[in-house]
């Protein structure tokens, strides 16, 4: 790794420890989306910010080795397709597009509210990957010299 890539050692060390906590908090927000304020979108943004933290601290090259950007693209598109599939399933099983066809369960339990937790997870995958890929794409712009002619 080149010395110039990324930020100083302090930032890198703090990031290495804190990024997992950020990811955990994001997961918490997503999984409790149907019980408390928050949900797929907010949690997804938090997860995207964890990835961005790594990118800022360690530099773009590290991210490129650490995760496969094409794979993130695929997660994003497939989560959108999954969301649609849930909608169509609701159409087939329940009363209409995106109908909540699973039993609602008991209030304030983690496994309740039918399809909403599943949709929250799908939305979180879409939002986190989408937001990260957008910022990644913006950040690599001046890397390709002078753009395509």
């Amino acid at each position: 790794m080149k010395q110039t890539e990324g930020m100083t050692l302090i930032v890198k060390t703090v990031t290495r420890i804190s990024v997992w906590m950020i990811l955990l908090y994001g997961l918490y927000i997503i999984l409790h989306g149907h019980i408390s304020p928050g949900g797929g979108f907010a949690g997804g943004v938090i997860i995207a910010l964890a990835f961005l933290n790594v990118m800022l601290a360690y530099g773009r090259g590290f991210i490129k080795r650490w995760v496969n950007i094409g794979f993130l693209h695929d997660i994003e598109s497939s989560s959108a397709a999954l969301f649609l599939a849930m909608g169509i399933l609701g159409m087939a099983v329940g009363g209409g597009f995106l109908a909540n066809f699973i039993s609602h369960g008991k209030l304030f339990h983690l496994l309740s509210a039918g399809t909403i937790p599943i949709l929250n997870i799908v939305i979180a995958a879409k939002v986190s990957m989408g937001l990260f890929v957008v910022v990644w794409t913006l950040s690599v712009f001046h890397l390709d010299k002078g753009g395509k002619k």
Binding site: H73, S77, A80, L84, F97
Partner: peptide, 17 residues
């Protein structure tokens, strides 16, 4: 009517996938 929205949306995501 819902299929007129679902089909192109699904096609768009499948194309990117």
């Amino acid at each position: 009517l819902p299929f007129l929205i679902i089909i192109p949306l699904l096609a768009a995501f499948l194309i990117t996938l």
